[in-house]
C-alpha cells in the first residue's frame, strides 16, 4: 500500500501539506457508495425472452446442438430396452430420422462439446438387447451383429455410438425429449429404417419463453433444474468460453448474474 522508498523532499512535503489539510478538517477518505441493494435486485432480476422457438439437442456424452431446425419422426423396428431422461411420454417406438438429426446438427447455430450438458439432462446410453439372438455365441450375451446393424444407418455409415431406446414420443415432428420417459421394456429400440429413438434428448422452448436466471441461483452459483436448466447451463458455458463476445441468447443477463454470484 505504501511507497516507503519514495521519500524525496517534494514527495514528503506534499504529504505534510496533505496532513495539515487533514488536521484542518479535510476528509482523508472519499467514498462512492455502490447501492448494494439495487445491485442485488437489478442483477438477479433480468429476464431472457426468446423471440423465436429454440431446440437443444443433447446426446449421451453431454454434447449439444442449439438451433431452430425441425426433427422428423419415424418408426423403428426390432425390440429392446432403453431408458433416458427428458420430456418424452414413453409410449410407442417413434424416433427421429437420422437425416433430420444430422441436418439439425449441421444447421445448428451453436455447438457444444462433450460434457457441456450436466449429466442429469443427458439421455442414458442406449442399452443392449436383453433378449439376445441365439446365433452369436458371445460370452456376454450380446448380439454383436444386431448391435452392428443398429449402429449403421441406411447408407451403411456409422451414425451412433449406441443403440436401443427407451421411450417413443408424439409424432408431430417436433422435439419432445426422445429417450425420455423412463423404461419401456416392450418398445422397439435402436434405429431402423434410418430412425433413432435413443441416445438423444431434445428440449424445446417456444417463442416468447421467459427464463429468469436469478431464480436458479443458490449459495454456490447456479442450480440447474428443469428444462430451463439446460438452456442456462449452455448459456453459462458459452459465456465462459466466448467471454463478453458471446452471442448466445441472453448472455448479457447470464453474465450479469454470474458477476453477482462471483463465478
Amino acid at each position: 500500500m505504501q511507497k516507503k522508498n519514495d521519500q524525496s523532499g517534494t514527495f514528503l512535503n506534499r504529504r505534510r501539506q496533505l496532513l495539515k489539510l487533514g488536521a484542518a478538517g479535510m476528509p482523508m477518505v472519499l467514498t462512492l457508495r455502490a447501492s448494494a441493494a439495487q445491485a442485488v435486485i437489478s442483477q438477479l432480476t433480468c429476464v431472457i425472452t426468446l423471440p423465436g422457438s429454440l431446440k437443444i439437442l443433447v446426446d449421451d456424452t453431454g454434447a449439444a446442438w442449439v438451433g431452430d431446425g425441425s426433427l422428423e419422426t419415424g418408426t423403428t423396428k426390432g425390440k429392446g430396452k432403453g431408458k433416458g431422461k427428458g420430456k418424452g411420454k414413453g409410449k410407442g417406438s417413434e424416433g427421429w430420422t437420422l437425416e433430420s438429426i444430422n441436418a439439425f446438427k449441421e444447421n445448428a447455430d451453436f455447438v457444444f462439446d462433450e460434457g457441456s450438458v450436466p449429466s442429469e439432462f443427458r439421455p442414458d446410453e442406449c442399452e443392449e438387447v436383453e433378449e439376445c439372438s441365439s446365433g452369436g455365441g458371445d460370452d456376454d450375451g450380446d448380439d454383436d451383429d444386431e448391435l452392428l446393424a443398429h449402429l449403421v444407418d441406411e447408407n451403411g455409415s456409422y451414425a451412433l455410438n449406441d443403440f436401443l431406446a427407451g421411450s417413443g414420443d408424439d409424432d408431430d415432428g417436433s422435439c419432445h425429449g426422445h429417450g425420455g420417459g423412463g423404461d419401456d421394456d416392450d418398445s422397439s429400440h435402436g434405429h431402423d429404417q434410418g430412425v433413432v429413438d435413443c441416445g438423444y434428448a431434445c428440449y424445446e422452448y417456444s417463442s416468447g419463453s421467459t427464463i429468469t436466471p436469478g431464480d436458479f441461483v443458490n449459495g454456490s452459483g447456479f442450480n440447474y433444474t428443469g428444462d430451463e436448466g439446460v438452456f442456462l447451463a449452455l448459456a453459462v458455458s458459452h459465456s465462459e468460453s466466448a467471454g463478453l463476445n458471446s452471442s448466445f441468447p441472453g448472455v448479457s443477463c447470464v453474465i450479469s448474474v454470474l458477476n453477482f454470484v462471483g463465478q
Binding site: L32, A34, S35, Q38, A39, S42, F260, G262
Partner: peptide
Amino acid sequence: PSSTNYHLLG
C-alpha cells in the same frame, strides 16, 4: 457517477 451500471458490475 457518470456510469449507468458501475454499481452493478462489482
